[in-house]
Computed example of a mutant assay.
Amino acid sequence: MTNHILAIDLGKTGCRGSLRMDGNQVGYAEAPGAPGLAHATGVTAAERAIRVVTDQIAALPTTFTLSVGAAGAASAPDAAAALARRLAEVPGATAVAVTSDAVTAHAGALGGSPGVVLAIGTGAVATAVDDAGRFTRVDGWGPQLGDEGSGGWIGLEGLRAALRAHDGRGPRTILVDKVREHYGVDLDALPKYLGEQDNPALVAADFAPVVAAAVDDTAAAIMTAAARALARTVLAAIERSGIRPPVPYAITGGLAKLGAPLLDPLDHQIGHAIDRRDPLGDPIDGAALLALDPATALEALVTRISDTY
């Protein structure tokens, strides 16, 4: 097995690649994300995003292990397998591992140990692993069917509230002006603008920090509702996994940067059931860990292409 690992964190917002040698990062690149492997063009979009990252990394070694955590892999295992086959054609990739970004988030945050990890970005998913290695996943169903409390969900709720106020169907809110400032379009043009985007959930998620920062009763209510939705997700993962509280718990993902408007009400609702841990690493660290260790409790969720395994 090569000592070089190219770990990829492919989300709906962005795609990050970290080239590592003996645990040390020696190369890094970023590119736009992809709509998720469950999307009709998900495999092609994912491969494109990953190849953009690999092309940007200078002095890519002649041989390396390519390990990917991709949004949508858990709900579209056939697409994950198809992506692994395509990535096996990347020059220099002597071994390929593909799994869900929720799995790499868990591995990165808790280092393969039992517990619950809430990963929140454009989407939202909670994953649990018990002492026997049983894996439980809650939500992560995408912007049409789930991802409640996520960046995409918060952003869309903010846009809907602005349109309700614009119509006179809802209370006045500063979010009306914030939409104009942030997107540079009038409210009447917002549906057309959003519909023209390749990744509407990502464009909506970009509005989530605006909602979190708005000093407004409507915006505050959206953040409280998001926290309640995320709390339901975490508590459901704990209950379904059968892990007895207090459960080792970590939170990861870009939405955690929203801070108190989201995390304070979330912590208030789940504090009785969790043993909060600082995440050991992020999803890209989890991808690197899974590249090295095919014997973790998460192995059944990893698709590998290699003569080694």
Rank of each mutant, 00 (worst) to 15 (best):
C15Q: 09
L190T: 07
R134N: 15
S75W: 07
T65R: 11
V247D: 10
G152R: 00
H39E: 06
A229Q: 14
Q197V: 15
T136W: 07
G168N: 04
D167F: 00
T44N: 14
A84G: 13
R277F: 09
A287T: 07
Q269M: 13
E196W: 03
A105S: 13
H4E: 13
I274A: 06
Y28Q: 12
G115W: 04
R169M: 08
A109T: 02
D198L: 10
G281E: 05
K257S: 11
T308E: 14
A74H: 09
G14Q: 15
A229V: 07
A119I: 05
V53A: 06
F207C: 10
G259P: 06
F64D: 14
G11V: 10
P35S: 03
A287I: 12
D285R: 01
G42S: 06
T224Y: 05
T136V: 15
R240M: 15
M21T: 14
P91I: 01
E148L: 15
R160G: 00
A250L: 10
G195K: 04
W141M: 12
G115L: 06
A7E: 05
D264S: 12
S150M: 03
E299S: 14
Y193V: 12
A161L: 02
H182F: 07
I174V: 15
V96N: 07
G115D: 11
P209Q: 05
A226E: 09
R304Q: 08
R277L: 11
A34D: 03
L280H: 09
L83Q: 03
D206S: 15
G253M: 01
A297F: 04
G23H: 04
A219Q: 04
A70N: 07
A107P: 12
L60N: 11
W141D: 13
P77N: 02
P143T: 04
G155W: 01
V179F: 05
A7P: 02
V43P: 06
A74C: 02
A300W: 05
A46G: 13
L110V: 09
A237C: 10
G155D: 00
T104F: 04
L83F: 04
Q197F: 15
A58E: 13
T252R: 00
G146W: 01
K257Q: 05
P77R: 10
V90N: 07
R134F: 14
D264K: 08
T252I: 11
A88D: 15
R304N: 10
V247I: 02
V52Q: 14
G112H: 10
A58V: 06
I50E: 13
D188V: 13
A124E: 14
G36E: 00
Q197G: 15
G140R: 04
G170D: 00
H268N: 15
R172D: 10
H182E: 04
L19P: 10
T2D: 14
A38V: 04
G152A: 13
E89R: 00
S306K: 03
T308Y: 11
I243Y: 02
I284P: 00
A214T: 09
R276N: 11
P143E: 00
L280S: 08
A221I: 08
Y309P: 15
V210I: 15
L37Y: 01
A76L: 03
E157K: 00
